[in-house]
Amino acid sequence: CASQPPSPEVDRAQGDWEHQLGRIEALDRWTLTGKIGLRSPQQSRSANLDWVQQDTGYRMLITGPFGVGRNVLTGEQGGITLENGDGRFSAATPEDLMEQRMGWSLPISSLDHWVRGLPDPRSPSQVKIDAQGFPQAITQDGWNIEYRQWSYAAGYWLPGRLRMSYGDLIATLVVTQWQPNQTGS
């Protein structure tokens, strides 16, 4: 299955990103495991993230240590639901649902693009490119997303560490295991 950060003999080279861009844009099924860290003057949080994406549907398990205090965020055609120790809830957007039920949120609606190194096509954005031609930062909807580390998994270069800031809020997403094109857990 997926390898962790770039294996020694495989480094990002000029042109790798353009070469795989079509496949990255077409990638709509994956399983990933990672960590979410959130720092703002008011609060700090960290959680495990288990994310299964299938076309436009997703299931995100957000858990604290020991798997306790978990939240399961599910997005499908029919709508978005969040299930946790208090029950099952739904709202128009995942961001509202998280704010209401968890007291914090991430820009989930754009994250399925940002996590692949792509801007969300639905709103204007600027993309800065690094020396190897890979996205270095995306600025969009008030967010600044920096790609700090890349992982090589099943033939794809995919972001391994994203630093997302919005005003005085900093969210860090570290992907510890990428499994593109896999949805069976």
Partner: peptide, 27 residues
């Protein structure tokens, strides 16, 4: 309490304080 990758985490109680260390988040 040490959790292996990909959920790496270390939780230590020395009897007075509890440290929750996440090596991926460096937090």
């Amino acid at each position: 309490w040490e959790v292996n990758a990909p959920y790496s985490q270390t939780v230590v109680s020395d009897g007075a304080q509890v440290y929750m260390y996440d090596p991926d988040l460096e937090q």
